[in-house]
Design a binder for these strands. Sequence first.
DNA 1: AAGTGGTCTAGACCACTAG
DNA 2: TAGTGGTCTAGACCACTTC
Lengths: 268, 268
Amino acid sequence: MRYRPAPHGLQPIAASGPGPLFRQARRELQRVIESGRYGPGEALPSETVIAQAMGVSIGTLRKAVDELVHENILVRRQGKGTFVAQHNDARFLFQFFHVEPRGEFPTQGEIREQEYPQVDCVGFARVRSDEAEAAALRINRGDPVWRIDNRLSLGGRAVVHDRIAISAALFSRLTERLYLERTGTIYSLYQTEFGITVLRAHERARANASTRETARILGVAEGMPMLEVHRLALTFGDKPVEYRVSTINTAAHDYVSLLAKRGQVMSG
Amino acid sequence: MRYRPAPHGLQPIAASGPGPLFRQARRELQRVIESGRYGPGEALPSETVIAQAMGVSIGTLRKAVDELVHENILVRRQGKGTFVAQHNDARFLFQFFHVEPRGEFPTQGEIREQEYPQVDCVGFARVRSDEAEAAALRINRGDPVWRIDNRLSLGGRAVVHDRIAISAALFSRLTERLYLERTGTIYSLYQTEFGITVLRAHERARANASTRETARILGVAEGMPMLEVHRLALTFGDKPVEYRVSTINTAAHDYVSLLAKRGQVMSG
DNA sequence: AAGTGGTCTAGACCACTAG
DNA sequence: TAGTGGTCTAGACCACTTC
């Protein structure tokens, strides 16, 4: 008979590595998830099984899972199991979209129902990366990237021009057709077709006069004050995945800072 | 002998209220903190004492404290105790200041050392609230507010014009002198002098041409694209405390979105 | 040495989901 | 009914701070 590895692929935590036990358990869990052994939307083994496989108590294992749930890597569903997070879940739709119609600040715990924008692709090309793209994606200047331009509309009005750059080496299988015929968000495409999960992002905002190109795409006058958001999306290990510049017409819309949404707070 | 209440003021959790036990414990803790029984910077009784007083196990009590720590209401210090958070702690200095010199996105876990701005007051007056101030602070239009204008400088360059509005009824004891002679941030002043702790804030950003007033204060040309951040700062119970409009010259600086800073994520 | 928060355990019981 | 995650307990031991 051939040797058969444990079907779950989980290693017992023996050599007392650095840090507390629950953090080692967390790393081991993350290792298995990154390995692709459990894909997006799949259920992990039950907590008791994992705890036994790792040789830790269930309380310790739960603390490890808590951290991964908190970082949106896992999702718990009571009575069903613990699942690898996927981007087409409703709960992640707005994790990276922060433009809303202008309005008053919400009162009390009021939750504004958000609209997801209509996306129209206005440019798709394989080009050589410019300075900013290369620096953000940590590739060499001139290395090929896919550069995708989209117009985002809310309530029928063009509000955002997105220019997306992703490494052509990393997304070599990408085609315009694959992109246009996707269902769901582009982050869902990254995850489903390329196995790349966007976990978090850096965002920096500034004001700038609209360029001719953006003015044309959004139908505004050239030189209008526009809000420019530069985003670097990261996957496991803080590896850069996507560099995106969103140019927003804030005549009737706002960019809503994330700390606004719920009683969350930095861990410091 | 006179009856003497328990010195800590904590009530046992008897009537099984709504939700799980640790959440009731959390509410009871928050109640005592809001009551002012323990002021900013003061230590709470030890976890074992609190747990006994409430009649819950230490694990349950710790879960309650975990939540309050996560929302920056409490701070744990191993070996010393659990303390009510105060705003002049170094860890809260940048919780509400998000302007940085333009630069590349940080690589890996790199931590940028931030500079705290020099603040110069350029206006202090008691005026009748305008539409936006009244709506944000949930007072009647025309109700008096303190309106404070500051110029914030980084590296010797004027970068931000802050216009702050706070209810004059809520901060009736405020004087220009008290404001000017404060040590620390204005949030520290709210907390120390008025017992009002800012816990979190809503922020919305947009681009706008600079007004004449802001142009003068910051020394830029009128009509330049400026980044405008509207912030509503809240205390316990999501009660509004301060409405602030920050107008930022983003020629050489960025507004850094909070989700950038660490692997934190919304709780959903 | 004494007191604090931090970690870890082993097990009981509850709430939810599915067949 | 069986399996999952969610809560709660009681206690042991560790790491850090202060005296």
